[in-house]
Amino acid sequence: MTEVLEKVEGLLLQDLRKRFGELEVLKGITLEVKKGEFFTLLGPSGCGKTTLLRLVGGFELPDAGRIVLSGRDLTGLPAHRRPVNTVFQNYALFPHLTVYENVAFGLRSRRFPEAVIRSKVEYALGLVRLESLVHRYPHQLSGGQKQRVALARALVNEPEVLLLDEPMSALDAKLRAEVQVELRNLQRRLGATFILVTHDQEEAMAVSDRIGVMEGGVLLQVGTPDEVYERPRTRFVAEFLGVANLIPARKVREGAETPLGVFPLKVPWNEGFLALRPERVEIHEVPVPGSLPARVRQVIYRGAYLEVFLEALGQVPLRARNSLRLEVGQEVFVRLPLEGLVVLDG
């Protein structure tokens, strides 16, 4: 096993476990993050995602398991000896140091010559477009500027892995969207490995190469954004990443039997759920083959689309997204396309 691990490029987490007193925060996490990948740990608060990040950063030590980076075992190394840097949730800028000195901090710790420090700091500040603010103190900066200083302060050390702990939670929605794009571009340009922790599924999908969805100290599913969104494996993943219609189903000879008909799907259980994204629900004003009658219960205007609450066959609630002009009480016909239905494991 060890020989295999040594050959891994990138970061390998092997069966990491951590408990705080009675509370088991991480129940055995195994994960490989590839070199140059933008990986996101997504989950609700308390799912263990921040603890997992802190284990990689070296701020906590695991009770069991290994952390291997580019073939080197980091498990027992203290934070200041790991080739990994962190952008903290509240940025944790040093209030008594200028922007320049904040960014230079890691280089000074490692006793780089002054000339090297100067050129590296200037390069890093250029990356985040903060050259003009070098002499400011953190309290003289806006939230977005602080965040960029924190980013430069970590990146200047050229870490093998950059850890980002909810770095955008303090920014307003518009700025957050901009920063997401910038972050993604920066990561591509540098070809660095980024690991982001967030509870915001839209953010996760916008920036990541791959997403790991966590809940209760367990990694539920790892995949590309469209894999975890389109093919959620569990009910939790389906519901945490956006809205999902959950349709109860029973295993029958022809496939899965639901209140909305029988679908020719292979199901691994006797009773369970099928998931269907609202945007996959087709609404027609006239019957089409395979459609069911439904009534519009509520319509919410969301700007780019309408959010439609339906009741199919007079009893089954369904959510849909649509741009049709629909009115409450209107009779319509819905079709559930087979390719949009996802069989959930649990």
């Binding site: 701020f59 203290p78 934070a79 200041h80 000896r81 944790a92 800028l93 890691g106 710790s109 050390n157």
Partner: peptide
């Protein structure tokens, strides 16, 4: 933690 993260 930031100091330790930055090799201090």
């Amino acid at each position: 933690e930031a100091v330790r993260d930055l090799y201090g």
